[in-house]
């Protein structure tokens, strides 16, 4: 059952220097309980997509076009009071840097209880009980004591657990996680990934996991969307995208990640740099960095479907080519 349906979303920033098209025509659906990974480099528009769903795009940015239907409601023209009612209660968000997401001058209980009370009446006892329960769920030992602590008394991993606990307080239908494990140690990262997966499955919560790390997404998401310069260039099941990438950019991303299987060989690089969103190349935005580019690429490619739901936005999709490439 579709929970979230985004149609041709365009979030643009109208700066003095010009219009920055951070998100430029993104469409995808998300079912209840499904985890979608959005992968891309910095500036590809993946975080802005998340903030657009939350209705937290700050001026000079705004949603210029498109619709975001969440459980039947179009969030794009939802008035702020209703949007605020959804935020935190039905759609929650987890941020990248756990050192920065909790307010340093407020105690953890203050920050948790205010999140509860933003969406209904809670007595002190009930609120504390709920906070203790959720902190316990995310694996924080002795929650009672921890509630009275300040954020600086926690380690990075523990702070991220607190932030996750806050996101889970109202058992939301959708959690948007903006690179929540990037700033953590690998061991902590693995623990948190495991626990999030468990919690999401228990509550049938849908999740959008924004990251630049394909490896994280490979073990977590049901489906993956790869973003480049404000657009989804490839989307499909995790297996399809990771093992049979059709877009040269996706293939490049996978090729440039070190793996155990290719010991001793040089990592392939994607040449050049991600284009500045202010001045994108005409046609396919990836064309200047692409080895397969031809004259046809001067025209922006439309999205085409390969087998199943595997979607790619390329004139020369690498059907099966990547498999042969690694085998050779």
């Amino acid at each position: 059952m579709t929970l979230l349906s985004i149609e041709n979303l365009k979030t643009h920033f109208f700066t003095k220097a010009g219009v920055v098209k951070s998100v430029d025509g993104v469409s995808f659906d998300l079912d209840r309980g499904e985890i979608l990974g959005i992968v891309g480099e910095s500036g590809s528009g993946k975080s802005v997509t998340g903030f657009s769903i939350m209705g937290l795009v700050d001026a000079p940015g705004r949603i210029a076009e498109g619709s975001i239907r969440f459980d039947g409601q179009n969030l794009v023209d939802l008035p702020e009071p209703q949007m605020r009612d959804l935020r935190g209660r039905r759609i929650a968000m987890i941020f990248q840097d756990p050192m920065m997401t909790l307010n340093p001058v407020l105690r953890v209980d203050t920050q948790m209880i205010e999140a509860l009370r933003a969406h209904g009446r809670w007595s002190d006892d009930d609120a504390r009980q709920r906070c203790r329960d959720v902190l316990g769920q995310v694996g924080i030992p002795s929650p009672e004591e921890r509630l009275k602590s300040y954020p600086h008394q926690f380690s990075g991993g523990m702070r991220q657990r607190v932030a996750i606990a806050i996101a889970l307080l109202h058992q939301p239908d959708l959690i948007i996680a903006d690179e929540p494990t990037t700033a953590l140690d690998v061991t902590i990262q693995a623990q948190i990934l495991f626990e999030i997966q468990k919690l999401v499955a228990e509550n049938n919560t849908a999740m959008i996991w924004v990251t630049h790390d394909l490896a994280v997404v490979a073990g977590l998401a049901n489906r993956v969307a790869v973003m480049y310069a404000g657009r989804i260039v490839e989307m499909g099941t995790t297996d399809e995208v990771v093992n049979r990438p059709a877009h040269p950019y996706t293939a490049g991303l996978i090729g440039s990640a070190p793996s155990r299987n290719a010991r001793g060989t040089r990592l392939t690089q994607i040449r050049g740099m991600a284009p500045l969103p202010m001045n994108l190349p005409t046609g396919c935005a990836f064309q200047p960095r692409c080895d397969h580019a031809t004259g046809a690429c001067a025209v922006s490619p439309d999205a085409s479907t390969l087998e199943g739901d595997h979607l790619v936005r390329c004139h020369h999709p690498l059907v099966g080519a990547f498999d042969r490439g690694t085998a050779a």
Binding site: M54, L56, R84, D85, L86, R87, G88, R89, A92, M93, F95, Q96, D97, M100, T101, L102, N103, P104, Q111, E114, A115, A118, H119, A163, I166
Partner: peptide, 12 residues
Amino acid sequence: DYVKFARAKGLR
């Protein structure tokens, strides 16, 4: 971030 996070919690 903590101000954005506070807004994301649905605070007034």
